[in-house]
Nucleic acid binder design. Sequence first.
DNA 1: CTGGGGACGGGGCCC
DNA 2: CGGGCCCCGTCCCCA
Length: 241
Amino acid sequence: MPRSFLVKKHFNSAKKPNYSELDSTTVFISPYLYKSFPAPAIPQPEILSSVAYNPITVWTTSSLPLSPLPSDLGSESPGSDEDERLHPKLSEPHAAEAEKFQCALCSKSYSTYSGLLKHKQLHCDAQARKSFSCKYCEKEYVSLGALKMHIRTHTLPCVCKICGKAFSRPWLLQGHIRTHTGEKPFSCPHCSRAFADRSNLRAHLQTHSDVKKYQCKNCSKTFSRMSLLHKHEESGCCVAH
DNA sequence: CTGGGGACGGGGCCC
DNA sequence: CGGGCCCCGTCCCCA
């Protein structure tokens, strides 16, 4: 059962990967993994079914086409499709005769300017920006590569030969296989603990820090994880909700 | 209840 | 363009 990983609370456009941060840690991925669990198999047809795979998502079909992509960040247009649907512009000039307003892209004609505007925003303009749509869901992408990567989240081509669990990408399968082998290639430089997952090591490293990464805006208390900060805030803190 | 570990996901970047 | 890797983040579970 997929978790609500598609629920995106916010997007930090300023985030920059810091690949050097964990360089000092012991990182060793055993070739055993590759020898023992070679090429991923193709999942069963039922796994490919868009009905069987029905991820929980809060993306609405109306918001998807114009959801900001990295290249769009910061230049969000004032009126989204959703906005247009909910609050259609009413102050545009009206055409006396029918079919007066024609789309320059597809030549479709509309009797009103707002009709043409809605058509452009819902179809032609959107298509001009994003031509690659997922056949399993409503998502659209500006590049074929991005779409192909997304489709893997539906087809889940990487299957664990031990338990049959399927993953979208090989490295996810690799991490999963560690749960079977017990391999923990990510060691904490401060204690004897080791982890199978780099993210978990990162979270663990926070526990060694006096000042942790996530700070409450109200009481300045710091937490090792965002989820702990959220719990703290939800449980009251000094915030009056 | 809180803190931490385990497992896992997507998007982005680099090669 | 695709694969591999990384970061950020979430959810679940347990001590």
